[in-house]
Write a protein that binds this DNA or RNA. Structure first.
Length: 480
RNA sequence: GGUCCCAUCGUCUAGAGGCCUAGGACGUAGCCCUCUCAAGGCUAAAACACGGGUUCGAAUCCCGUUGGGACCGCCA
């Protein structure tokens, strides 16, 4: 379907409508993102609506958690958050209207009975849909509080026009009379979603394709209420590595878990948008590009497997391109968490920024960065055992002594001067730089991998460098 | 079981009937660079699920098969 046939004449209004029965997860975040992108692209309105009609499973904590997740990803909304539990009188009003017009009816069946019948039908290989037995019941069943069911047409067909999938036809015969209001007077999803989308003047319903089968039912509710249907766009699902619906079994699914693991929100957004959407061969996008380029024409139909490897690559790309000043502020909480610094410890941000320069392209996440930063900051470095035996030994002892003396004489402790010192030693002994650099590296960092040794020494500073070199020489012991 | 959706490298994808000897990215392997580790550069292996049509010509259109997924709640 071309963009022209979208309702561009009127203002675009979309919504993200999570149910607070869990944290904001990867799939929900992608749905929110596509809604947000569509709204921003068309300069429309993005509404946040909390679908908390399931009072037994919804919690206040999850509402906050979802909002935190949205904020972390910078998916700002223009209206809301609305809460369906604040709107029960609205649903009641619409339910009464349908009841009066004979478009809905009381159902006295008990949940247990329905459950039993469903199982029986399934066992016999029949469709487990409601049999409509209360449709023509006139007298209330004594001692039972009824639910309200919607009268679904049983003949003809319903056509869903989907922006992504095109025309989809459903036989009405397949539809059953769904409950729109529970016996405790709480309305149900398929009803509230229609009432709210109408009430909030939503023009485009953008949601996961797990809702595709609900759509014909909702279309009948729209028409029973006398409203025009919005446009639908059903997004392909995000699957786990085993190609089933993404869930806890597949590891981290909550958006905030990625924050904890040291991912940048821009990277997650970039990763998520490419799950189902593409723009030629481009992989990395700025927000502005995303808003500019986003269109349903480039949204695919098939489901996508969540691939953590690619996410981590994208994150490393964003790490490299994030300005140091920003990285400094972002990494500090991780330094605290990793106990590299204490909570009340102040750090020299300018110095930290220099250290980060050497590490940012070697760290795939903020957590990794914090971990790598340890040797710059800590007072007592720990030797990796294999590194120690290989490089801090009799063979390197004299070299370490020599370099220590030379460095002690150095007044300008800069990377370039340090390099001169190293080179002159290497030249004197006619050997490769590695023979000197590796023992020093282990002495200073405790490990065999680190940024370039000259810049490391400059950042560690003369005092600490000499201290660590003395300690390394001592650890080798006296020549026997 | 019924209904609906989907099908290009292991994964994300490009592909709008001839530009396809199927392109890019992640990952994997090798090489280069190099004080180590990265980063970066280069190279390689790796896919149109299958079968029928339509057409001069099909990854692309149609049908079927197979495979996968989702939904069928007084959940959303």
């Amino acid at each position: 379907m071309s963009e022209k046939s979208l309702r561009l004449d009127s203002e675009v209004r979309v919504r993200f409508a999570p149910s607070p029965t869990g944290h904001l997860h990867i799939g929900g975040a992608r749905t929110a993102l596509f809604n947000w992108l569509f709204a921003r692209h068309h300069k429309g309105t993005f509404v946040l609506r909390i679908e908390d009609t399931d009072r037994t499973r919804s919690t206040e904590d999850y509402i906050h958690s979802i909002i935190d997740g949205m904020k972390w990803l910078s998916l700002d909304w223009d209206e809301g958050p609305y809460r369906q539990t604040d709107r029960f009188d609205v649903y009641r009003k619409y339910t009464d209207k349908l009841l009066e017009e004979g478009k809905a009816y009381y159902c006295y069946c008990l949940p247990e009975e329905l459950e039993r019948r469903r199982k029986e039908a399934m066992a016999q290989g029949k469709s487990p849909k409601y049999d409509g037995r209360c449709r023509n019941v006139k007298e209330p069943a004594a001692g039972r509080t009824p639910a309200v069911r919607f009268k679904m047409p049983h003949e003809g067909e319903t056509v869903v026009h989907d922006l992504i999938r095109g025309r989809i036809v459903f036989e009405n015969e397949q539809l059953d009379d769904l409950v729109i209001m529970r016996s405790d007077e709480a309305p149900t999803y398929n009803f509230t979603v229609v009432v709210d989308d109408v009430d909030m003047a939503i023009t485009h319903v953008i949601r996961g394709d797990d809702h595709l089968n609900n759509t014909p039912k909702q279309i009948h509710i729209y028409s029973a209420l006398g409203y025009e249907v919005p446009l639908f766009a059903h997004l392909p699902m995000i699957l786990g590595a085993d190609k089933t619906r993404l869930s806890k079994r597949h590891g981290a699914t909550s958006v905030m878990a990625y924050k904890e693991m040291g991912y940048l929100p821009e990277a997650l957004v970039n990763y998520l948008v490419r799950l189902g959407w593409s723009y030629g061969d481009q992989e990395v996008f700025t927000r502005e590009e995303l808003i500019k380029y986003f269109s349903f024409e480039n949204v695919g139909k098939s489901s996508a497997v969540f691939n953590p490897e690619k996410l981590i690559w994208l994150n490393s790309q964003y790490m490299k391109n994030t300005p140091n000043e920003k990285l400094v502020d972002l990494v500090i909480p991780f330094l605290v968490k990793e106990k590299v610094i204490s909570e009340d410890q102040t750090v020299d941000k300018e110095w930290l920024s220099k250290a980060i320069t050497t590490l940012k392209e070697r760290s795939k996440t903020l957590l990794e960065l914090a971990y790598s930063l340890r040797f710059y900051i800590t007072e007592d470095i720990e030797y990796d055992e294999k590194a120690r035996t290989k490089f801090l030994n009799e063979k390197s002892r004299d070299l370490l002594v020599e370099v220590t003396h030379s460095l002690a004489d150095l007044n300008d402790f800069s990377a370039s001067k340090i390099e001169e010192v190293f080179m002159s030693i290497v030249g004197r002994h006619n050997m490769k730089l590695g023979n000197l650099a590796q023992p020093v590296r282990v002495a200073i960092t405790g490990r065999t991998e680190s940024p370039g040794i000259f810049e490391v020494l400059e950042i560690v500073g003369k005092e600490k460098t000499l201290k660590r070199l003395y300690r390394a020489i001592q650890s080798i012991g006296i020549k026997t």
